[in-house]
Design a binder for these strands. Structure first.
Length: 585
RNA sequence: GACUGCGUAGCUCAAUGGAUAGAGCGUUGCGCUUCGAACGCAAAGGUUGGGGGUUCGAGUCCCUCCGCGGUCGCCA
């Protein structure tokens, strides 16, 4: 039950009547008409810009128009008052019973309140993580992983059919390096003195078990073979081991993918998908042989002007055409990526979201161009870039890792502070803003730790229900709560909590539309603040306490309010992938 | 040089093109002597980096300049 959506339609009906009565012309563009919560609570429960949004088209005075709309809205029984303010805002005060209906709906449908048909079951592909299978995940990967997972949860909650996908970069030079690195560990496992890991190979000790497994499987049979013979086998074993490692890392954050898509499968199968993709584009005149100008500013020293195979990315908004073949004739990463995104389109995804690290920002335009090209303009790609995570402990930067040598692994952080703080804090910032993550702060049990603050709100609600049961033997079921007389909730702090709960469905829609899960985190933080404020008010004013012995009528009403709150907190935390504890010790 | 993200209170950050730009921390004042304080209430604190434009209305959109970061054919 989205009260804002209901009233958006209601305002539309009012405009229809004004049109029928000849007060405004027909065919106005009402797409900018919104019903939203007013910033100032003194302005009522809902506000609409309808008059201002159409005044100019209607060649009418916005305030006069607002009065006409207000007059219509005043006839609505769900409304207790309508005023016109400022340049033409229409402020609507809801009848208390209207707000109570929303609370009842939230209470009766704990898991469904806030869900919507917004997505209408449309298929959306969310690709995230896609870390190279060459080692454990680091903290930066973790941000993209959590962001993508929460975004997928959010979209599913908003009615989309979401597929979570991981693109495995199991082709290219880096996995050959991985294989060579594993081979060193293999020799080591066979007792050879390998000394320091050679420059250019992966030094991390996470490859030690891979070497051991190879020694166990192949004994010394690979030792004297030329690289070309052992590399494919070792590579496969090493990639599998690294993907197992990464899946474990992801599992520690409760992240799972529906599809792991292999880059190698694009060109290694029966048909070369990359080649097919390129030829398809070529047949439409979108691939040609040509020369690129060297980059301006500081040209690379090894720049070689040569003819190459180019994708006409400029046709679709990119700044320059992009090469598809390397000088040695192999496909560029971009060529494979075009084929990969074509595969997504052919698998039925007209809506794709890629979550990347900020260092790939220069890649966005060409990828969007490619998606337009391979889909004939029928698919849309949104790329969400996650900025760097700066890891701190008590304000001091954390740099080195014991395990990997040169970066802090995600696992180390999860092991130190736990899943919930990692997930919540990664989402308590816009994705495109850099993030400071303080390992000490996220474990504080205080108001300036948002993770604690929100989880504690949920635990406090549970504790009220426990207390009601323990002190009064009072354990109403959901139906009893839904039947409560909510009109006893008259304190401004209680009404404010009702208003916030009523805003949840609208928040979900806005966050889903914008692909911005952080809005859920901030909403929960604000909502928790309103609840904690009400709790504290009960400290000074005993009549506001949730459980009042001998006053079942107001107790049941307050428990109903808290039951609605608990549902919203639980739904929101579930979207973030953070647990909603019933107690915190 | 090009592209891209960012620039909001002392600090860290919010704000689908809406009204007097909001939170937390910090600061200041008051309260709380454990009965629901793992604090509460209140105050001070802003030219939203500068300038122009679009709009009834701009932190938000466009242009430009400044500052910080990222990226820049064949790495992924």
């Amino acid at each position: 039950m989205n009260i804002f959506g209901l009233f958006e339609r209601r305002v539309g009906e009012a405009l229809g009547r004004l049109e029928a009565a000849g007060h405004i012309p027909a065919g106005l563009d009402t797409s900018r008409v919104l019903v939203e919560p007013p910033r100032e609570t003194g302005h009522g429960d809902l506000a609409t810009n309808a008059a201002m949004a159409i005044a100019k088209q209607a060649k009418a005075n916005p305030r006069a128009l607002a009065e006409l709309i207000a007059a219509d809205l005043r006839t609505d029984p769900r409304v207790s008052g309508v005023t016109v303010a400022g340049p033409g805002f229409i402020n609507i005060a809801l009848a208390p019973s209207t707000l109570h209906e929303v609370i009842r709906a939230a209470l009766l449908d704990q898991h469904g309140f806030g869900r919507s048909g917004q997505g209408a079951g449309a298929a959306v592909n969310v690709e995230n993580v896609s870390a190279n299978p060459t080692g454990p995940m680091h903290v930066g990967h973790g941000r993209g992983a959590v962001f993508g997972d929460a975004l997928a949860n959010l979209l599913a909650f908003a009615g989309f059919a979401v597929t979570r996908e991981y693109y495995v970069n199991d082709a290219g030079a880096q996995v050959d390096v991985l294989a060579r690195s594993a081979f060193v560990r293999y020799r080591e496992a066979l007792g050879q003195d390998v000394g320091a890991i050679p420059e250019g190979l992966y030094p991390g000790d996470y490859l030690v078990p891979v070497g051991r497994a190879l020694a166990e499987e192949f004994a010394s049979t690979l030792l004297d073979r030329p690289e070309a013979e052992w590399l494919p086998t070792v590579r496969t074993r090493a990639i599998d081991a690294m993907m197992a490692l990464i899946r474990d890392d992801l599992a520690s954050l409760d992240i799972r993918h529906d599809v792991f898509f292999s880059e190698r499968s694009l060109s290694g199968g029966a048909t070369d998908e990359i080649r097919a993709t390129i030829e398809g584009l070529r047949s439409r005149g979108l691939v040609y042989e040509g020369r690129l100008p060297p980059p301006k500013g500081q040209p690379p020293e090894d720049w070689e002007d040569r003819e190459q195979t180019l994708f006409r990315a400029t046709e679709f908004g990119d700044d320059i055409d992009r090469p598809l073949l390397k000088s040695d004739g192999a496909y560029t990463y971009f060529a494979a990526d075009i084929a990969y995104h074509r595969s997504k389109f052919e698998r039925g995804f007209a809506s794709m979201i890629d979550v990347w690290g900020a260092d790939h920002g220069g890649y966005v335009k060409r990828m969007r161009a490619a998606v337009k090209a391979v889909s004939g303009g029928d698919a849309d790609l949104d790329v969400k870039l996650c900025q760097l995570v700066k890891l701190l402990r008590g304000g001091e930067p954390v740099k080195m890792s014991k395990r990997s040598g040169d970066f802090v692994t995600l696992r180390e952080v999860v092991d130190e502070v736990g899943r919930d703080p990692v997930r919540f804090m990664m989402l308590f910032r816009k994705n495109d803003a850099p993030l400071d993550f303080d390992l000490a702060k996220v474990l504080e049990q205080s108001k300036d730790n948002p993770v604690f603050y929100v989880q504690y709100a949920h635990a406090r609600v549970a504790s009220v229900f426990r207390q009601a049961s323990e002190t009064s033997g009072f354990t109403p079921d959901r139906e009893a709560l839904a039947g409560a007389d909510l009109s006893v909730l008259t304190d401004e702090a209680e009404i404010e909590l009702e208003r916030r709960i009523a805003q949840w469905p609208r928040l979900v829609e806005a966050a889903a539309a914008a692909h911005e899960p952080h809005r859920v985190a901030f909403f929960l933080y604000d909502l928790s603040g309103v609840f904690h404020a009400l709790w504290n008010k009960g400290k000074d004013l005993p009549q506001l306490r949730f459980v009042k012995q001998g006053d079942e009528r107001s107790t049941v009403a307050r428990l109903a309010l808290l039951g609605a709150l608990r549902g919203v907190l639980a739904s929101g935390l579930a979207i973030l992938g953070v647990s909603a504890p019933d107690e915190m010790r």
